[in-house]
Simulated scan of single mutants.
Amino acid sequence: MDNLAQLTIGATLLFCVLATAGVHTYASGKAQREALVHRLSSTQQIPLGRRRRFTGVDRRLKRTGVGKKIENRLAATGLDLTPGEFFVYMLAAVAGFWLVASSLLAAFFGPIAAAIALWAAFAFLNWQRQKRIERFINQLPELSRILANATQAGLALRMALAMAAEELEEPAGEELGKVANALAVGQSIDDALGALAERLPSRELVVLVTTLVLSNRSGGTIVSSLRNLTITLEERKETRREVRTQLSQVTATAYIVPAMGLLMLMFMDNMWPGALDKITASGLGQAVVLMSLGLYGLGFFLVRRLAKIEV
């Protein structure tokens, strides 16, 4: 009986000692982690993560095909959004546009405004992706120069890409970091650079990737090729800037004309209260309104198409 009591007391004391040691280890580890995060964030080496919203919606959405497409588009834009957050914000925008159009114009314009808001959400993703591609293209001359200097110094192409990822700013630094990570886990240079060209499609990047891949396969002199490519990319960068400046007025016209049509509708409804309700009350009036909106949309598409000049 005494042995059982001593064994129980000993086991209890051992459990208390282990529990105390575990709590102390956990507390010290947590304090060290917080100190490390604070030190790195203060020197801007890593960003502090934010709390994600709508995690339940995000988990369910990622299981669907639509969620995967949204996730791929968000990854190409570089936005700090999850598919669930974007989906909820998009639904809120659709509902808000519906209510605003119904209250300011007429009930008939509610679904039309909701459809426009839905299109505008995905157009916003495409716009952000195109902006990121443009920034990446502007960094290509510097990227080519860094790779040429690194290879001339005797570094392998894998090491040159990793060094460029550390020296360049966003988005080139992030994208090249993905390439370096892919090479570190065993992917070939062809596959890693091909994935980069798929994420950020552009003629300039395709030329650079093709030059790197062919030089890596054949073992030729990559330095002279990159030097010549740097000069070509600088010239194309200036040409693209000039073309964009020349077409800025045309691009502004594409947005101003539909905006003028919307303002005219609001002005007419303000001058004659209830005019839009009377117009959209009949089938003929609804058909005329839809035809007018279709013509505005066609004009917007044609102007944007004419202003899109590939350099």
Score class of each variant (00 low, 15 high):
L4Y: 10
Q6K: 15
G10V: 02
A11I: 06
A11M: 09
T12K: 09
L14A: 15
L18V: 13
A19N: 05
V23T: 06
H38N: 15
I46L: 08
L48C: 06
L48K: 03
G49S: 08
G49P: 09
R50E: 12
R52G: 08
R52C: 09
T55I: 14
G56V: 11
V57W: 03
D58Q: 04
D58S: 07
D58I: 04
D58R: 01
L61T: 00
K62F: 11
R63E: 13
V66W: 15
A76K: 05
P83L: 02
G84I: 02
F86Y: 03
M90I: 07
M90P: 03
M90L: 10
L91F: 11
A92Y: 07
A93Q: 09
A95G: 10
G96V: 05
G96W: 01
F97E: 01
L99R: 02
V100N: 00
A101F: 02
L105S: 02
F108L: 01
P111M: 01
A113F: 04
A114L: 01
A115T: 08
A115Y: 06
A117Y: 00
A120R: 08
A121P: 00
F124G: 06
E134R: 09
R135M: 12
F136A: 12
L140V: 05
L140I: 02
E142Q: 14
I146R: 01
L147D: 02
A148I: 03
N149C: 11
A150P: 00
G154V: 07
E170R: 06
G173A: 07
N181E: 15
A182Y: 00
A182I: 00
A182M: 10
V185R: 11
G186A: 04
S188K: 02
D191E: 15
D191C: 09
L193G: 01
R199W: 03
L205V: 03
T210C: 10
S218C: 07
I222S: 01
L226R: 00
I231Q: 10
R236K: 13
K237M: 11
T239L: 13
R241P: 00
V243K: 08
T251W: 08
I256Y: 06
I256D: 07
P258V: 10
P258Y: 04
A259V: 12
M260N: 06
L262Y: 02
N270H: 13
N270E: 13
G274C: 03
D277P: 14
D277Q: 12
I279R: 04
L284P: 11
G285M: 00
Q286F: 08
V289G: 03
S292Q: 05
L295G: 09
G299K: 08
F300A: 08
L302H: 14
K308W: 14
K308Y: 12
E310G: 10
